[in-house]
Design a protein around this nucleic acid. Structure first.
Lengths: 222, 222
DNA sequence: TAGATTGTTAATCGATTAACAATC
DNA sequence: TAGATTGTTAATCGATTAACAATC
């Protein structure tokens, strides 16, 4: 294979586009490895991973191949090396700064979560239009007035915005972000937002997940 | 086609399994219809929907066919009927009771959100192990001691649990749920949970979404 | 009627799974 | 060595897209 060299500067040639389902599974493997007792388990096989995560060994093998890791027949992969390969591939050791819009319950939940750092995301601050919410937030993160957003994004060259504002405000916040140079939006508002083609939007759609869950539940009940 | 009759009692025969991507798009169509000015738009075509949602007309047509809706050539679908057909198909007019575990920021965010009702989900209450969090929550929802969970689930025949507790507590909460007869778990904890085969788990995996977002961002930047 | 749109069958595309040689 | 596991090419499966007749 040998696609996706670890050094991003290396590849001038066409790079194999990674399948999104694979991409979504990589953090799952990473979390699995993190929870292994590393003092005991120095190597792990696809067979073992697949069994524990309820996947097939072939799928695991193919997914991991994307990261460039090379395993040893009969023993499997070095757990430490595999973990690092996933982190490398996902860019988790080059953290991205992000600005959070909205300090309601959801915004505070995101701001409180200290796990994002290990996923290569650093929420530098939050902004909120409500003066009552402004001030010190969880984990020593500041909650600033909305007016500070544009300057902050420009000054820190922030590329990622997280939108956790009410549905009605989502589009205008997105517009603001785009005008300041934001290139990726993680949207938690239950609203479709429209952005130019060069901006990526990842929509966290609870209604979709709920539809899957409740349909499965109703199908099971027969 | 004529699969998936609206009356769930009708089908003894094999029922066409709905594709998950389709299932996830149905709420998107629904939200789109909701935001239409219904006084003006009595009928809507696939072409129009596809254009506004950045999909293809063929895909929209196929997705909507699952709901059993029948359109009229040249005009499209009756907007009202289409909306109801989606709600019917997704079971949104037979709401399911759910119990929320965890009243941290995320739990409160879920409890505060008044949109779930229209998605067929009724969070009857929350439970939390921390006495300081117990009492009245948002929207007049009670936050009860953890010990009340089992009785509540059994008494109300609750089938859905929402887990919004810290990673370390997730599995033991899941075990509790299973032992009380919960059949579907919506898991917001960043933890893999293991349940018997007859229980459905929908895992809301932020790390996966973030991986997709940051990979797209880094690929764009070349 | 003409033209746009639906409903449905066939073709394509991409992800998953199977098969198997290479390797430790 | 024998046996388990990797890496990779081929086959399968399922979702998307294309094609087109039916319909208003």
């Amino acid at each position: 294979m040998e696609n996706l060299p670890i050094d991003p500067a290396a590849g001038g040639e066409e790079r194999a586009p990674i399948a999104e389902p694979t991409l979504r599974r990589l953090p799952v493997y990473h979390n699995y490895l993190k929870n292994l007792d590393s003092s005991k388990t120095h190597a792990i096989s696809c067979t073992q991973i697949a069994q524990d995560l309820h996947l097939t060994p072939i799928q695991v093998r193919k997914d991991l191949a994307c990261t460039g890791i090379v395993g040893k027949p009969k023993t499997g992969y070095d757990t430490q090396a595999l973990r690092l390969a996933i982190e490398d591939f996902l860019g988790w050791n080059n953290p991205n700064d992000a600005l959070l819009f909205g300090a309601g319950h959801l915004g505070l939940a995101l701001l409180s979560y200290d796990g994002f750092a290990s996923y290569g995301l650093d929420i530098v601050a939050a902004v909120d239009a409500d003066p009552a919410k402004q001030g010190a937030g969880p984990r020593d993160k500041k909650i600033l007035p909305l007016e500070k957003a544009a300057g902050l994004i420009r000054r820190m060259h922030i590329k990622i915005a997280i939108i956790a504002v009410p549905e009605a405000a989502a589009q205008s916040i997105a517009d603001l972000c785009v005008s300041c140079g934001i290139k990726a939006i993680w949207n938690f508002a239950p609203a479709k937002i429209t952005v130019p083609a060069d901006v990526t939007v990842q929509h966290e759609n609870l209604a979709s997940s709920l539809a899957v869950l409740s349909k499965k539940l109703s199908l099971r009940g027969e």
